[in-house]
Amino acid sequence: MKIAVASGKGGTGKTTFSVALVLANRDRARIVDCDVEEPNAHLFLGGPEPVVETVRASIPVVDGDLCTACGACVDFCQYNALALAGSGGLLVFPELCHDCGGCIRICPNNALTEGPVSRGTIETKIIGGDLELVTGRLEVGSPSAPTVIRAAIARAPLLERETTILDAPPGTACSFAACMLAADHCLLVTDPTPFGLHDLALAIEAIREMSKPFSVVINRSLGPDDLASVFCRDQGYAVAMRIAESREIAQACSQGKTLLDAIPGIGQDLRDLLDAILETRATEVSG
């Protein structure tokens, strides 16, 4: 069971919530940080130095002896990552390449072969002996965020856990989709501001297109009648949890503390939340 924690708007407390959710359920959940552009879960979870693996992709490497500069690969490439430089022959621009492999197949002279290039890293660690954190990290300047996200999700688990929590990237674009396609349930974290509400609606639109079940977590809630609560009530969306607005919580989080430190009793609520999702899932599968 994979549960994605997502939000249309950035800065709603998505990572804060994911971290608390996994900490409260550490006996039965692991966490994968899929916000590969700006992975933050490790800042709150601490733990030992991670094992680092490189996410490799294949870019074309030119054999100058075989290349006849016919231009078939240049014409094929949708990303303008190849160029013919007159007498200088064929040039490859790895930062524009999307690693599709098309040029290598299309070359009539077998002059292109696969060469590895790094798109980012996967960092794995076990915290306190029982909590697994996998962090995907995009290389700065690389365009291949979805590649790194898919690699992080596909990383073989070190610990056997019933649930994997995916800390999703913000927004509703391809990175978000790459993460969400792997999920069985989505928790959407919002705040009750006009921006938060607007972006929540966009995220729901995207998730419905993928036919994924979801529920809403309202962070910094101003009570059962705040903007987000009213919106969910009107639309009939399930609210999985409310976390009250508080300057103390904000300050605790700014010091790197977690919600479990800041709010007494929230641990049990987070266990109940996971129970409820697992139960609904079981009904859906069997029903």
Binding site: Y79, N80, A83, A85, F93, L96
Partner: peptide, 13 residues
């Protein structure tokens, strides 16, 4: 993306 690369090839050709 890569407009400059394409234009450069055009000029060279």
């Amino acid at each position: 993306q890569g407009a400059g690369i394409q234009s450069a090839q055009l000029v060279i050709a």
